[in-house]
Amino acid sequence: MNMMSDTMSATACLLQMADEHFELEDYQSGVPRWCTGCGDNAILAAVQRLCRDEALRPEKTVFVSGIGCSSRFPHYMKTYGFHGIHGRALPVAEGVKMARPDLTVFVNTGDGDCTSIGAAHWIHAIRYNMNLTVFLHDNQIYGLTKKQASPTSPIGTRSNTTPRGSYLEALNPLTVTLGVQNVSFVAQAADWIPEVLFDIVKAAYHHKGLSFVRIIQRCPEWLPKALDPWMHDPNKVQLLHHDDGLQLSTGLSRVYKNQLEHDPMNIDRAREIASGHETIPVGILYRNPAVPCYEDLRYSDKLRTPDLTRAGLNAELDKYTVWPQEAKEKVA
């Protein structure tokens, strides 16, 4: 960057061009340790593709996660990553973004991480509406701790803590998110429809504000058949499309005939669609680019130089200083 000398050679110029071009390998780090068939793999593929297509500089990109299977995500990205503590990915990511609005920040969080232990942060993150892209990896079960019901487990889910089936209706992350003031982007994807998954990830990335993407994903280990009814019957998936939303390819339309034109600016309709039980809506439910971002409201553009600090400090000290008599007279 500023390392470049004034007499930049043609070679350096070419090198810089090469530097702006990225391959998938530039974002891949290690071999994911997720189970075969785990939906996390599909999300990773879509996100790595996004990074390459958008030529995101790896050093300017940060993936922040909490704890759980999905929160291993940053380890498989060759960017900066922050694999923190259970439930707290969002406040960590907010801190990163506030300190450094120049960084592109993604958040990977699971259904336990986001909608249970981190639920308070989830609500408030929507309200802050910082420019973050949040992926809720929702497999409706606690995986890493070995099969306990999560808030999004459908009622009756048998798990190690609910051996006769879970007792409560599942929490609906879409309706919750759509109910919070300042919500600016809500979408739903399914790991088994990679084309739409990618389009949504891309739309989410391009939205300025908090993009909340719930990705319904399979857990082959603990709930291998839970999503079969939806996977086996394309009509149980309702694709949302609109001129200002997703455009569906002909190939996709051939398989998924249950389609609905939905204007992402219409929040009331978005809430209705999100509240449905029988079909899974997939697409962009809501998008409002006019909601202000917290970092824009709060970030100070004052560069805190030593001179500014000295001046600011002295102005404050003046308020509380008891001057010796002669010094005071001198000032006067």
Binding site: I85, V92, G95, V96, M98
Partner: peptide, 24 residues
């Protein structure tokens, strides 16, 4: 002078926010 006080949603978030900002 520039800078910001973030009143977080709870004490845990305040600490996590500070950690995220410090990290970056």
């Amino acid at each position: 002078v520039g800078g910001m006080v973030h009143q977080a949603e709870d004490e845990i978030a305040a600490c996590a926010f500070a950690i995220g900002a410090s990290y970056a």
